[in-house]
């Protein structure tokens, strides 16, 4: 039974080791659920890094850990269902890639939980590093300082000094993109 499920956004972090240690002491493999927004093929670098990192910490897939993977293939409407699948598979740790998928997964996790523990991460401003676990959620997110996205404009100007018309593709549903778009507009005026 899943009494405590760690929720990691962006990568493995602080809660993985204690949980794995508990399970290993009990002689059981820790079951990890990995949810990534891309296709399996595009996720290869992330999956490889995750496996390598776990291996360096002594966690071997198929031995001390079992990993269940779900890939949304860029279809974010699939994220709630995939999260529910992993929860139904009794994973003890959820590793979710990306702020938006993590927010969706946390919501599903909260709604699906019938046991008592509060799981949601305290509301934090997107784009900040999680240095300490918040309840049973932790991880990292990209920590760009204000003005960072203006560097993209500077880089483009270096490549195309006479650029006068630039298309910017951004996702307004992602809180960090709102900041990036603001930074880009400021830099473009400069």
């Amino acid at each position: 039974m899943m009494q405590r499920r760690a929720f990691l956004s962006g990568g493995l972090a602080l809660l993985a080791a204690p949980l794995a240690a508990e399970a290993q002491q009990a002689g059981k493999a820790v079951k990890i659920g990995v949810l990534l927004p891309q296709s399996a093929s595009l996720s290869v670098p992330m999956v490889t890094a995750l496996r390598d990192g776990l291996k360096q910490l002594g966690y071997i897939e198929g031995q001390s850990i079992v990993i269940e993977y779900r890939f949304a293939d860029g279809k974010f409407d699939r994220l709630p269902g995939l999260t529910a699948e992993l929860i139904g598979a009794q994973v003890q740790i959820l590793v979710v890639g990306g702020t938006t998928p993590a927010q969706v997964a946390k919501k599903v996790h909260r709604q699906s939980r019938s046991c008592s523990q509060e799981s949601a991460t305290r509301s934090r401003r997107a784009g900040r590093v999680f240095c300490t676990p918040a309840e049973n959620a932790t991880g990292f997110s990209t920590a760009h300082e204000d003005g960072f996205a203006g560097k993209w404009v500077e880089l483009l100007r270096e490549v195309v000094p006479r650029a006068t018309r630039v298309i910017v593709i951004h996702n307004p549903t992602n809180p960090s993109n709102i900041r990036y778009w603001r930074d880009i507009k400021i830099a473009a005026r400069g």
Binding site: T100, L156, I169
Partner: peptide
Amino acid sequence: QEYSDGLIVVTDPFLSAHRT
């Protein structure tokens, strides 16, 4: 359809998922 001198694609999981 529209002319541009350059393109910026902002970091976002959805955009990354469709980067191909």
